[in-house]
Design a protein around this nucleic acid. Structure first.
Length: 548
RNA sequence: GCGCCCGUAGCUCAACUGGAUAGAGCAAUUGCCUUCUAAGCAAUAGGUUACAGGUUCGAGUCCUGUCGGGCGUACCA
């Protein structure tokens, strides 16, 4: 496999060689960018402008000196131009493009992979919904984003584990058990009081019915809710796992918060912090001196009831992750949890861990729109649309795509009606359609041609062909970039550009019916496009169909 | 009050470390199917990037302030 971004590295190298003539005190950072306008070439650098001040000269004059001192391989670069206020624009030689096209085909399913995170062990924690009900579209963004970020990191060489963190010991779960108990008694025709703030969803009744089917009335005299809670947890986790699997999400581990208590880690965490004088008792509660870290208030770690707040196990959990030797622990959560993050960082830092090894992917809320109005979801009140219902309507590919197409940083408006309508004209189909089209053409090419020699790619001269190759070459950097920023939507933007470049090519250039030499070269080009589409869709966890 | 995020075309959203003429999709208008899938292509129209300052060769992007929206700011998770 060829090294990624070879062209940008090459350009940076030859430019830095030319810069030696200036005897600069420090090596400037050489930026190579993709121009927006085709007239501005295939790559550009602003280096002359950034050197204007230190060299006390005008940028265009500096650019001229740099270009004069530039030694480059004409097999790679066909032209170097100075333009605008002092940009230096480069044009790629066609031979270079053909070589790269060949290397895409050689790399195949590996094209786009890079090694920036090689040998990094990364834990991505996501979903982490307590098992109180089915996964809803509210959880969808978390689930799909977490899984896709994990895939992106894998594409940059990291060894990734996916973990689901949950707590089955809290108040939520107790109320859940009581809710099932009440439905159970109701179904048996007995008096039952539905708990205040109980879970009203129909699935609670289903769980109760399952208990009746298995054990009859045996539990009617149960002293507390625990057998009901256990059954509910089991059923709901089975449901959640099914939903995740349907979305092509595979967890490596489920981490139960309770184990932190059983292993004494909670106690240990508090004692360690106390030894550092960061913890004190007041009003029967245990406080964490977060004012030491610049917060305006200290934070309760253990309530006067003796029950820890969620911050304490959170700190212990992150310490546990780092104890397991991960180089990076990524948490995926919604903007509403952002406030807890500094406490966790301060906690693990105080315990002697490197907080740099913990990072978060924060996404903004999904605004569900139903019947044209914002719809407030509540698992407890049974106001929700489940991910399974959504996938029944639009399928898993559309579901994943929908959650990935926007930057995590923006509020995602999820209009149920529109998502259903979208069935026929969803943007994801545009990408899949391009892939299916290529597959279809390749099937026909195989029937009608019998190529004997190696393809001669140099017959690819049409602007649509050249654009297509140049577009594909951006893929590795795009993936690395998306991984670095943990923003999968960059990959979608790229794939839309590629699919669009392909459909233009499809309309401009035929394969079938052309003479053998041209048909073969175009077939190789189409094969490469299909490969890149497959690779990109694979990162997104979306299928690349052979026909539609 | 304080903290974080957001404000870009009628709508939903792009725009990598600050770069050259701010882009797509949907909606609108107009062409294009005896030819590899029209789930498509080409073209037109649509903008004071909320507002006001500042930084600089250059700002949608960085800084300050104002307005508007979301989320936090619990001995809830």
């Amino acid at each position: 496999m060829k090294p990624d971004f070879s062209m940008k590295e090459y350009l940076a190298h030859i430019i830095s060689e030319s810069l030696k003539q200036f005897e600069l005190e420090e090596q400037p950072n050489i930026q190579i960018e993709d121009p927006n306008q085709p007239e501005h070439g295939d790559a550009a650098t602003n280096i002359a402008m950034t050197l204007a001040k230190p060299l006390r000269n005008n940028p265009r004059a500096i650019a001229q000196q740099i270009v004069d001192g530039l030694e480059y391989d004409e097999n790679k670069i066909s032209a170097v131009e100075i333009a605008g206020p002092g940009f230096i624009n480069f044009r790629f030689a066609e031979d270079y493009l053909f070589d790269e096209l060949e290397s895409i085909l050689e790399a195949g399913a590996d094209f786009g992979k890079s090694a920036g995170n090689k040998d990094q062990r990364v834990l991505v924690e996501f979903v982490s919904a307590n098992p109180t009900g089915p996964l809803t579209v509210g959880h969808g963004r978390n689930a799909v984003l977490g899984d896709t970020v994990a895939r992106l990191l894998e594409w940059t060489g990291a060894e990734v584990e996916r973990e689901y963190y949950f707590n089955d010991a809290g108040r939520q779960m107790r109320v859940l058990g009581e809710s099932v108990q009440a439905r159970y008694l109701e179904l048996l025709g007995k008096d039952a009081e539905f708990p205040e703030g109980g879970y009203e969803g129909e699935y609670i009744r289903d769980i109760a019915q399952a208990l009746i089917d298995e054990q009859g009335e045996e539990l009617a005299d149960a002293k507390d809710e625990s057998p009901f809670k256990e059954k509910a947890e089991e059923e709901i986790f089975a449901d959640i796992s099914g939903t995740l699997e349907r979305m092509s999400i595979k967890m490596d581990s489920f981490f139960n918060e309770r184990s932190l208590y059983e292993d004494g880690k909670i106690e240990e965490t508090i004692e360690k912090l106390r030894a550092k004088d960061l913890v004190y008792d007041k009003d029967g509660a245990v406080w964490f001196k977060t004012t030491e870290f610049g917060k305006d208030k200290d934070t309760v770690l253990v309530k006067s009831s003796g029950e820890p707040t969620y911050r304490l196990p959170d700190i212990a959990y992150h310490a546990n992750k780092l104890d397991r030797g991960f180089d990076l622990c990524l948490d995926v959560f919604g903007a509403d949890h952002i406030a807890t993050y500094p406490d966790v960082l301060n906690g693990i830092k105080s315990l002697g861990y490197d907080p740099e090894k913990v990072d978060v992917v924060v996404y903004q809320f999904v605004t569900l729109v139903k019947d044209g109005k914002p719809f407030k979801m509540s698992t407890r009140k049974a106001n929700f649309v489940t991910l399974d219902e959504l996938m029944d309507e639009v399928g898993a590919d559309v579901t994943r795509f929908f959650f990935l197409m926007r930057s995590p940083n923006t509020h995602l408006e999820f209009d149920i009606a529109r998502a259903k309508e979208a069935g026929e004209k969803n943007p994801v189909f545009y990408l899949q359609y391009a892939h299916a089209r290529i597959a279809s053409i390749l099937r026909k090419v195989e029937e009608e041609y019998d190529f004997e020699s190696q393809a001669d790619l140099s017959v690819l001269t049409h602007p649509s062909e050249i654009t297509l190759i140049k577009t594909m070459l951006k893929f590795p950097e795009n993936v690395a970039n998306a991984a670095r920023l943990r923003e999968p939507h960059h990959v979608i933007n790229f794939l839309e550009e590629l699919a669009s470049a392909f459909t233009s090519f499809y309309h401009d250039c035929r394969i079938l019916g052309e003479d053998e030499k041209l048909a073969q070269a175009r077939m190789e080009l189409a094969k490469a496009v299909a490969q890149v589409l497959r690779n990109g869709l694979g990162i997104l966890g979306i299928t690349a169909p052979e026909q539609m």
